[in-house]
Write a protein that binds this DNA or RNA. Structure first.
Lengths: 215, 215
DNA sequence: ACCGTTACCGACTAACTAGTCGTTAGTATA
DNA sequence: TATACTAACGACTAGTTAGTCGGTAACGGT
């Protein structure tokens, strides 16, 4: 093996020096941080690991963030985008109530299979106490918003005579709770086999149908 | 301030040297470890902190455990005791189905308000990957066992004509899921106000009644 | 082609902590 | 009380890592 200027393809020994604008480098850093933090937790993650994965050195990283905690904060803040329920679209594209419920459950379960979302959830649970402000913000923007939207959607269905006025209409979080259960399983036991995920999804749908469908 | 032999009551400067048998010291160490680990996570917890809280020095702690990971392992193993559902007792002491559901939900929610259980759950989620064997054991002993018992209980109720044959009878985990949701909230946002806990409990009961009670 | 800006490098330091080990001192038994 | 046993001490070592800083090189503007 020639030890010349570019040992190259072995195990990238020195991708010379790549100069990127902050606008393109920072997302790379946050992507790397998400992987590293969620794999090892906050304390066990080394700045050098994040930097290496983002394609620069520690010193370079410090040009963009003043410390480890600032990286963490920026990471959580980036994931604050609320997954807005397309209420109108759901109502429009669902022939009947059962279809609507299936769409709804599928949207919720899609979040579970999204690795970035899972990683963020794990960080939120295990390291969230570091940044109570960010967590509170996340609660408002994501959780409360989703509860609210679910409530609006369901009350509209009731008004339109599409479904019964069940307990879950007044407590939309009950609709989310099976997803919470599955999330906990995934966090504690690792990724569940597709079969179990499908069973969970189907049981979830069935229960909601039982609760909401007109008899 | 006299720097004599016992500055005593200031900030306990030297509770001289207490010699305890392993049988009494080890539980103290595990109690301390639960507090420290769940407050700061595995990596951020120092051996000295655990030792200090347990009332001895680091060297003393190493007389009982050969390392930090062994303490952690012993801690999780200690909490493996399954909270067995008193099925017979539940059936005997419940006048009607609604009362039985209320008892059931109360048992589940009692776990949530138990600080030691919450701390263990947090550790299991955030640091469980360190000890996959212990986590798998916990799953068998606790989660699967509880699902099984719930299934037995509900099927018996159906057979005795006490309740409908709902989806949740075939998927008992759905009954647990609202508790999972509340658990996540507690872990992410800290202890919930009693009012919200009670609302969650009531909504849970109402939903189960809707699903199970004969019409 | 020159030049100023600034993203990036990497060796260094300062701080922290898991684990060690020779010593000390409670406690039980005689 | 004398003695043996061992829980507990605490200073020390060795290894790790967050953050610093003087210098380097890529890029845009002229």
């Amino acid at each position: 093996m020639p030890a010349s200027d570019k040992p190259a393809d072995e195990a990238e020994t020195r991708p010379p020096r790549q100069r990127l604008s902050p606008d393109t480098r920072i997302p790379l850093i946050l992507d790397a941080a998400l992987v590293e933090f969620s794999a090892r937790g906050y304390n066990a993650t080394r700045i050098d690991d994040i930097a290496a994965r983002a394609g620069l050195s520690k010193g370079g990283l410090y040009a963009h963030f003043s410390g480890k905690d600032k990286v963490f904060e920026a990471l959580l803040k980036r994931s604050l985008v609320a997954p807005v329920l397309e209420i109108e679209s759901l109502l429009a594209h669902s022939a009947d109530m059962r279809t609507l419920i299936e769409h709804l459950v599928d949207i919720l379960h899609a979040q579970l299979t999204n690795p970035a979302m899972r990683a963020t959830a794990r960080l939120l649970l295990s390291e969230g106490h570091r940044l109570p402000d960010v967590v509170a913000l996340w609660r408002q923007n994501t959780l409360d918003a989703m509860h609210f939207q679910l409530g609006v959607l369901l009350r509209r269905c009731v008004t339109q005579g599409l479904c019964k006025d069940s307990t879950v209409v007044r407590h939309p979080w009950l609709i989310l709770s099976p997803v919470a259960h599955t999330l906990i399983q995934q966090l504690a036991f690792g990724t569940l086999p597709p079969k179990e995920l499908r069973q969970a999804r189907d049981a979830h749908v069935d229960m909601l149908c039982e609760l909401l469908l007109m008899t």
